[in-house]
Design a protein around this nucleic acid. Structure first.
Lengths: 164, 164
DNA sequence: AGAGATTGATTGACGCTACAAGCAATACGG
DNA sequence: CCGTATTGCTTGTAGCGTCAATCAATCTCT
């Protein structure tokens, strides 16, 4: 039942549900962060990646890789975050073409303030909906899909950080 | 290990991978449809929902529910699809406030032309990355998450269609 | 039947993302 | 070395999504 491009009925039932999750979940995450912390989910993700980096600093290029952003997109986002005082950009000493983005103290405080509410949302809509076995299955399924979506492991620094 | 808002290490490992999938997968779907068929994934989804409806027609309100679109967003999208000849809008006879969106023959042909390539992409990046057991687990996991994201079953017509 | 509230849909303005072009610094090849 | 290509990033433009405002039609209550 897995010949040709078409999907079997069981595969379709699985896929359609995943599509619905893809449609609904980002909106829920965005709404909560936007309402409670004035951040889009992608902005929160950028700040979170910086907060976990050495010196809370990453080169734009590396930050773009971890967040799956194009460099233009990241440039716009970081400029806006800088205008709000959450991030600072400094020229990279090693390579004068490069720019380092650093989390400011204000940005660090913003991430720490936003994290509990965000985690609670993730728990409410995802983790607490699943059994412990399903949480484990989800890790395996996501990892398998990521091996196709991200074969080079470009985003791996973002998602392998909490592995045992 | 599931008290308080914080996530355990295992839960985080699972969640971070799902976040990466949420970042990467929509882009892959969009790129393929855009490149091969000149459609965004959301446009394809709208056309697909219409193609499965009786008379290939749905009231804007129902179409918005199935696709998780706000009515303004759907209005813009349908206007553009209508300008391209893929969809036709007609006043609803029963309720003169309402508008029916119908798939034209051109739109029907466009969906049918796009479907195989789209299905192949889904297979390549998702289904074929998983074992049959994982495909089944994914259905259960997605259904559990949807029970939280969509407790009213607003999108259910879209994702229960292929259930045995 | 009439006033007010609700529903269904459209429109316009603004913000974010993708794409293309551009500039500066570095690496490479003769 | 010098010229070219490549890398890293920024800027400008166009397109899509969101929100608020708007309008028409329907429903509700008396």
């Amino acid at each position: 039942m897995s010949d040709g491009p078409w999907l079997s009925k069981d595969e379709l039932a699985s896929w359609m549900r995943l599509v619905a999750v893809l449609e609904l979940l980002p909106g829920v995450l965005d709404s909560q962060l936007r309402r409670d912390d004035g951040l889009m989910h992608f902005e929160y993700f950028v700040l979170a990646m910086l907060s976990e980096a050495p010196d809370r600093t990453l080169q734009m290029r590396d930050l773009a890789a971890r967040t799956n952003a194009t460099l233009p997109r990241l440039s716009h986002v970081v400029r806006r975050l800088e205008e709000r005082g959450l991030v600072a950009r400094t020229p990279c000493p090693q390579d004068r073409r490069a720019t380092n983005a650093s989390l400011t103290d204000t940005g660090w405080a913003a991430v720490r303030a936003a994290a509990p509410g965000h985690a609670a949302t993730v728990r409410e809509y995802v983790i607490d909906a699943l059994s412990p076995e399903q949480v484990d299955q989800l890790k395996g399924i996501s990892a398998a899909i990521l091996s196709r979506l991200d074969p080079q492991g470009t985003m791996a620094p973002a998602y392998t950080r909490y592995d045992g």
